[in-house]
């Protein structure tokens, strides 16, 4: 946390429902696409000119689902299911907690969660050599 975060920031409440509405309709289209064609979708929230108020509204609309995952790798990453299954927040932070990317992924499970094959193979080797050891 940098000290900048401690400065209280008042958000000018200029509501812009258009932005939120268009993000929502894109999510709808992506989910439809995933269900019919199996193609995953991503929306990069940082690439959109959203204000803090817009974010808040979007978060209120999407709500929270059952799953929340934290990954500790090169900083913390959060993978949160929204109230709409298949629609996830994927938020990557660096080691000093700054947001790297903030995306919405439309998929059954975001791929960052999955174990990587190369590493599973390495793990297997480690386990095998471990099992030779005596306890």
């Amino acid at each position: 946390m940098s000290s900048l975060d401690q400065i209280e920031v008042m958000v000018e409440g200029e509501e812009n429902p258009e932005m939120v509405r268009s993000v929502l309709s894109e999510i709808t289209a992506l989910l439809e696409c995933w269900l019919t064609e199996g193609k995953p979708g991503v929306i990069d929230l940082q690439g959109l000119p959203l204000t803090a108020t817009d974010y808040q509204q979007l978060e209120e609309k999407l709500g929270r689902g059952e799953v929340s995952i934290t990954i500790q790798v090169l900083g913390k990453s959060q993978i949160l299911e929204t109230a709409f299954p298949g629609v996830w927040y994927v938020i990557h932070r660096d080691e000093v907690s700054n947001i790297l990317t903030k995306q919405i992924e439309v998929i059954d499970i975001p791929s960052i969660v999955l174990s990587q094959r190369v590493e599973m193979e390495q793990a297997l080797e480690r386990l095998k050599s471990d099992s030779n050891m005596t306890f």
């Binding site: 995953p40 940082q46 990954i71 790798v73 990317t101 960052i112 990587q116 590493e119």
Partner: peptide, 26 residues
Amino acid sequence: GVSRRGFLKFCTSMAAALALPAGSAE
């Protein structure tokens, strides 16, 4: 000491920055 998952995370931010389509990070 960077795991593959960490690397994927890195690629995600690159792909997002480059505005590449979904699945490009992988």
